[in-house]
Design a protein around this nucleic acid. Structure first.
Length: 193
DNA sequence: TATTGGATCGCC
DNA sequence: GCGATCCAATAG
């Protein structure tokens, strides 16, 4: 497979633009077990200081350090005592914004994914931010990892014709009014309808 | 040091 | 609707 890793410049664009632009791109993780890949079909923007739902809104902390760093790096955090979520850091260094990757359509290494997470329905494999971390092998070790080189990166891809829709973000208790979640309309792997 | 609640998920 | 499960952030 020819690699077309998204350049760091891609991650400098406004966060909501990046959230939409990431739809249809491919997240790839090279692991000892094999290469895992999935098409990004659902994302959410988290807009830093002005966004009460964003982890960085109340200032710089050890957890949010990666979000304050340079663009094109991972922000992986642990939550609910058992789940990881994966974000890509956007905007220049010092501007703590990110895009949460909420759902993938499995593309490569599906058997490995199924081994990592025993689940009957293949649609349930990657249709949520914590689920996709399990099957893609993403955990705290990849926090702050650079996404423009292996083992974890995002590839450009010829875009299939698709419509993007914007809806409220999921699972937050503040700033619920914003339509900062986007997904590929009609895609079966989106986490919720 | 103690308390609180969380960018979730799967089962009831 | 609810419990699991633990850690980060905040308050004391």
């Amino acid at each position: 497979m020819k690699r077309r890793i998204l350049p760091r410049k891609f991650y400098l664009q406004p966060t909501l633009d990046a959230a939409a632009a990431l739809l249809g791109k491919v997240l790839v993780h090279e692991t000892p077990d094999g290469t895992l890949a999935g098409i990004i079909v659902e994302t959410e923007g988290y807009l830093g200081a002005e966004d009460a739902a964003c982890h960085s809104a109340r200032g710089r902390t050890p957890r949010t350090e990666a979000m304050f760093g340079p663009p094109g790096h991972a922000y992986v955090y642990f939550t609910y005592g058992m789940h990881y979520c994966f974000n890509v850091v956007t905007r220049p260094k010092g501007v703590a914004e990110a895009v949460l990757i909420r759902a993938l359509e499995p593309l490569e290494g599906i058997e490995i994914m199924q081994r990592r997470r025993m689940v009957g329905n293949p649609l349930a494999l990657t249709s949520g931010p914590a689920k996709l971390c399990v099957v893609m092998g993403i955990d705290r070790r990849l926090n702050a990892a650079d996404l423009i080189r292996p083992p974890l990166w995002i590839e450009d891809r010829a875009i299939d014709a698709c419509r993007v829709v914007w809806r409220p973000r999921i699972g937050i208790s503040q700033a619920k009014e914003h339509l900062w979640r986007c997904y590929i309309e009609g895609n079966r792997f989106v986490s919720k309808k």
